[in-house]
Structure formats: structure tokens, C-alpha cells
Amino acid sequence: MELLKPELGLIIWTTIILLALIFILTKFAWKPILKGLNDREKTIAEALNTAEKTKLEMAAMKSQHEALLNEARQERSLILKEAKDMKDAIIGEARDKAKSEGAKMIEEAKREIDNQKMAAIIEVKNAAGNLVLEVSEKILRRELNSKDEQVKYINTLIEQSKLN
């Protein structure tokens, strides 16, 4: 059969055309196309990786953010608590101080009162002494006039003092 007989001329031409086609297409088509495909695949893979990384980073940042918020919240309550404690302490201290101050003042007042009292007593005593002296003087001055009466008077005094 003629169909099954390969013709040499056609084989030669096919070889030439195929070689030329392989050479031209490799140089002008396959290389740029395959390189473009590879590059784009790489770019896409990189973009996807970056997106994934960014997502993770975002999640990390969010949790970090939340942790910060929590911390801030804790700190705030801590500060509030501290302030309250401090307030309580100050108030307590002030109260204590006021109390002790008051006590001190009362004490002082008491002491002053005592002092004043003592001074008054002493004054009264002095006055009484002076009065006694004056009276005694007067009496003495009068008694010198009559001896008998003086003796009599002294005797009454002695008697009185003996009674004491």
C-alpha cells in the first residue's frame, strides 16, 4: 500500500520544519511563556504567603492589643484601688491625728486649768496669808496696847490650834 510507504522527501522536509519550529518556538515562545508562567506562579505563591503571614500578624497584633487593653484595665482598677486605699488611709490618719490632737489639747487644757487652779489656790493662799498677816499685824498692833488681853488672845489661839 502506498499509504504505508514513508516518502524520503517528506521525511527530510518534516525534519527540517520540525527542527526549525522547535528552535524558533523555544527561543521566541516557550522560554518567555514558561518563564512568565513560573514567575507569575512564584509571585502568586509569595502573595498568598504574605497574605497568610499578614493575617497571622494581624491576629497576633489583635491578641497583643487585647492583652494590652486587659493590662490597662487591670492597671486602672489597681490604680483606683490604690487611690481608694490611699484615701481611706489619709482619712483614717487624719481622723487619728485629729483625735490625738484633740486629746492632746484637752490634756493641755486640763493641765492649764490645773495650773490656773493651782495658781488661783496659791493666790488665794497668798491672799489669805496676807490677810492673816494684815489681820495679825492689826491684832498685834492692838494687843501691844494691853498685855493681858494679848495673853488671853494668844491662849485662845493656842487653844484653838490645840483643838486643830
Binding site: L25, F28, A29, W30, P32, I33, K35, G36, L37, D39
Partner: peptide, 10 residues
Amino acid sequence: LFRTAAKGYT
């Protein structure tokens, strides 16, 4: 055909 296609990549 492929020259045209390849130009797209460059």
C-alpha cells in the same frame, strides 16, 4: 500565535 502570546508575558 505563540509569539503573540509570549509578548503578553514580557
